[in-house]
Design a protein around this nucleic acid. Structure first.
Lengths: 344, 344
DNA sequence: TTCCGCAGTGAAATCGATTTCATGCCAGGG
DNA sequence: CCCTGGCATGAAATCGATTTCACTGCGGAA
């Protein structure tokens, strides 16, 4: 069953070289090419990609490393990568690193050893993810969502700061004043950027309305900020903690979707409801339109993130020697009912 | 940078064969082995898997083909596969077939051409997915969730009929009587099995309470059944349609999670709420505990499905010649508030 | 002491495709 | 008529690891 190029060559009465040329665009007379094609079809011949890769030193497969396959953000991204790759007949293989740097390193080694054509990586850690091996071997790499420290690769990022600022400004415009913020771990770039956007919006507002500053018994920018872990439980705890303070906030900006789930539960447990208590999630939640009231979210361009990364990778792969790029994609605020305003 | 086995051999002053033996458990004197290991470490040598695969005709990678990467059911399954594979140092690459038989075939060809060690496939179509190519080449294959027609492979399935029967019986026990059913496309095995389970439960109940039959103006088993498409919109439409009937049901059993979302929306639009109107989803919904009232669901053993499939595959790969197996895994009913009963 | 057998080793074959290189052939120009 | 150039072609080298095979010593048995 397993037919090789030699079998086809023999069946068609030509040499293996000729068969190879037929399939790879070499010069072959029409008559012979036809004979080869017929013989190949007859034998059900498909070139052995392993042998091909060994010889050409490259594959028609690209690797996509993501930290959490159960997170819709990354799966949507994967879809974007896939769709872009389809255009040039590349196959995408997905590796789940599980936020684990060791597992990630193993997969990077696999990518290298399998001679993959390139890799797109949403790094498990900004600090400890090490892409230098791939760079040293000249493998095309694009980082997405997070920029690993000290690596010289193309990067595609989300405009976290802008999206957060925008979202916070929206809540202020709707009349919320005592807006808290639950962000991710200290040190993570995404947490910091989202927090920074929130602070910018608050700062701008206070500057524009200096008279209002007196309404706040404490400095909201520091007192009402909580660092959590981007997980459901962390969001729950942070929210409960905020609600226990003597100066209770009247709204909360939550820096990712999972923590928003936790925060929502904490609110319900405290007998609070949106939109009297405003809540906004950075990052889409699949069921956002379903809960009552429907949840206002910052939509991340996850699909486009993937698409863009794949395009950059293919540019790189085709040998174009252009300077390193960093592409930043904007978010979109999806206004729903959970931020209609405290009096609504 | 790219060091080969030859480089290591030269550096250690031995032959390539010896280096290979050091890494693959051949007999080598301790002293030489040590020299080789040191030289390899020095050069950062890692064997080229492509070359290895070409020679050994097998890889240390298994393929996992799933129809929809954005469906949590499949991602949980993927996790199960991964965890089981880790144990024997196999890497898993994930391919998203997008419910598209052509795309699926391409990935199957990739698996073949890349000489993957084996494949686990959640078939895009029960009728048109063709595994015979892989079988012919002797590649180990395990089918999961759906059994492709006419293929001789190990299969891991969910006990759809039992789960549905159980779920429907639960609703009857809670006092719902006019229970409708929204299932998937006619002909799909999962739809049919889930429908069958529902019908069994209803039939058993009517037999046990013949006096009750008079309460029903129509034959519920046929009149209150709707075939939809396993998608949100289909569920919405089917539910709206059921509610428009003169004999309105008082509960609904929905055969998958996405359609349950649609059905919920239709209920809300009609001003109906659980648990007065009972609703139960076959298949977990990530936000099931979050909606009010929380949604009763049938939990699918998705993780275990993956784990079991990977174990079977590894058995097969290790050359054990045992008869074909079909493993059926039970579901678990997660009772929540949406089925507390019509009077609750 | 002489064999026998086995452990350790390296040279070379092997996997299947691609690609280089040398060759044969034909057409067209001088 | 001969030479040049280009095209089509097949033989052979190549990619890098594994594995077979033949050979060398060495230790134990006869």
């Amino acid at each position: 069953m397993a037919s090789t190029i030699q079998d086809v060559a023999k069946a068609a009465g030509v040499s293996a070289a000729t068969v190879s040329r037929v399939f790879n665009g070499g010069r072959v007379t029409a008559e012979r090419a036809e004979r080869v094609r017929r013989a190949a079809a007859e034998l059900g011949f498909a070139p052995n990609r392993v042998a091909r890769s060994l010889r050409t030193q490259r594959a028609s497969v690209i690797g996509l490393l993501i930290p959490d396959i159960e997170n819709p953000f990354f799966t949507a991204m994967a879809r974007g990568v896939e769709d872009a790759a389809q255009q040039t007949n590349l196959s995408v293989v997905l590796c789940n690193t599980d936020e684990d740097v060791d597992k990630e390193r193993r997969y990077l080694e696999v990518a290298l050893a399998e001679q993959m054509a390139g890799v797109i990586v949403a790094a498990a850690s900004r600090e400890r993810t090490d892409l230098s091996l791939l760079e040293a071997r000249g493998m095309p790499v694009v980082a997405v969502d997070r920029r690993p420290r000290g690596s010289n690769v193309d990067v595609v990022l989300v405009d976290n700061a802008h999206g957060s600022e925008d979202a916070t400004a929206h809540m202020l415009a709707r009349g919320y004043r005592r807006i808290a913020c639950i962000t991710g771990p200290q040190g993570a770039s995404t947490s910091e950027e989202r927090l920074a956007g929130y602070r910018t919006a608050i700062g701008d507002f206070l500057r524009a309305h200096p008279d209002r500053a007196g309404e706040y018994p404490v400095d909201p920018v520091t007192e009402w900020t909580r660092f959590a872990d981007f997980k459901v439980e962390g969001g729950h705890k942070a929210m409960a903690d905020l609600l226990a303070r003597p100066e209770r906030p009247d709204a909360v900006f939550v820096a990712n979707n999972l923590m928003a789930v936790g925060a929502l539960r904490a609110l319900r447990e405290a007998g609070l409801n949106a939109p009297e208590f405003g809540i906004l999630s950075f990052g889409e939640v699949p069921w956002a339109p379903m809960v009552s009231p429907s949840l206002t979210t910052v939509q991340l361009p996850s699909y486009d993130l993937g698409w863009t990364a794949a395009s950059l990778l293919q540019d790189r792969m085709s040998g174009k020697d252009r300077p390193l790029q960093t592409v930043v994609l904007r978010t979109a605020l999806q206004v729903r009912d959970s931020t209609s305003g405290p009096g609504a």
